[in-house]
């Protein structure tokens, strides 16, 4: 009888699986990812390496010496350590952050615009003390521009009524507002000394959200050639809330990471962050195999660094407020080893 190994589900809870069951999960996760994204399944070598990682009973797992990658630490400038600026110092000095990010608790460029003077002053103050690259980050967050929170008719209310043309028009109009706000905040932050901008969870509200972001990136790149620009995605496949929006002649709805990367690169991004969301009812091994399968075509062709999203509930890291370190470590190593990532 096969020995049972303690491992985790996508919600972080313990389960026990045999080595054969873990292998079956890896294969099943890869096959589902391949079927959905039309990518090749992982090869035997990749499955074998993942099996060694997830069938190990060690408390921790790590990449080989010399294979370390850059960690961007998006969203680390919160107030856990007192103030956002002191938090940046803590992450730089105590958590080994390769870059850090200042952000506002209402993580949206629309919201940040209303407190921009405070945020830019914090950026300027932080730049005096922080040595590591310091970006400013927020979400494009297109939904904020729809009624009742924003100025345009709510497409989520129009679509169920069959008012498709109006729903599409409202998303286009919202996108213009969002692009304007992102460029406005970016300009102020760069004037305050920011090293770059992070557009986190791009596409969260669908193809209109991503188009607004790409248009903002293009404008920022044109105006500030040396600015760092990170485009991080909200999920593996761009939702077609509009359905017909294009960037440089390519339809955004239905894009998977490889095509998302091409769009972000064309817009002028310097770092791209693919995201694959976690299924909490499947094992971490299953989730990692699926994530690797979906993202591998992207890393193979990239001309800019790929920093895969590996936060809570993304990339295989369990959806838990306190992710178990044994699970996070395995995910971290697995993503870097299989995908040959530039960072996380």
């Amino acid at each position: 009888m096969e020995r049972r190994i303690a491992t985790r589900l996508g919600d972080g809870s313990f389960i026990e699986l045999t080595r054969s069951e873990i292998e079956a999960d890896l294969v099943a996760g890869s096959e589902l990812g391949a079927k959905r994204s039309k990518a090749p399944v992982l090869g035997d070598d990749d499955i074998g390496h993942l099996l060694d990682i997830f069938a190990s009973e060690a408390k921790f797992s790590a990449v080989d010496l010399g294979h370390e990658v850059v960690l961007s630490f998006d969203g680390c400038g919160n107030a856990d350590a007192g103030t956002p600026v002191s938090d940046l110092i803590v992450y730089q000095n105590h958590h080994g952050a390769d870059s850090v990010e200042l952000w506002h608790h209402d993580y949206s460029y629309k919201a940040v615009k209303t407190v921009l003077s405070f945020e830019t002053q914090a950026m300027k103050d932080a730049q005096m003390m922080v040595v590591a690259p310091l970006n400013y980050g927020a979400m494009p967050d297109l939904g904020r521009y729809s009624m009742p929170d924003g100025p345009v008719p709510n497409w989520s209310e129009l679509l169920p009524l069959g008012r498709i043309d109006e729903a599409r028009a409202s998303q286009v109009e919202a996108g213009l507002h969002a692009t304007h706000d992102m460029v406005h905040v970016a300009g102020a932050m760069l004037e305050a000394g920011a090293d770059g901008l992070d557009f986190d969870t791009s596409g969260a509200a669908g193809d209109g959200d991503l188009l607004a972001t790409l248009n903002a990136v293009r404008q920022i790149r044109a105006a500030w050639p040396d600015a760092g620009i990170e485009v991080g995605m909200a999920g593996e496949c761009v939702l077609g809330m509009h359905g017909e929006l294009e960037f440089e002649g390519r339809r955004l709805a239905g894009m998977w990471p490889k095509d998302q990367l091409a769009a972000a690169t064309a817009a002028g991004a310097t770092i791209f962050g693919p995201a694959v969301n976690v299924n909490t009812t499947r094992s971490v091994a299953w989730n990692v195999a699926r994530a690797c399968t979906v993202v591998k075509p992207c890393t193979e062709v990239a001309t800019i660094p790929i920093h895969m999203n590996a936060g809570m509930g993304v990339g295989g890291v369990p959806m838990s407020a306190y992710p178990p370190t044994d699970a996070t470590a395995r995910v971290s190593r697995a993503l870097v080893d299989i995908l040959k990532l530039d960072g996380l």
Binding site: A62, L71, G75, G96, D98, S320, T325
Partner: peptide, 21 residues
Amino acid sequence: MGIGDPLGMASTHALASGMGG
């Protein structure tokens, strides 16, 4: 990479795969 629980996320990633800042 995202941040949340500093030990479960930041420190763990840093030790498992990070360069060290």
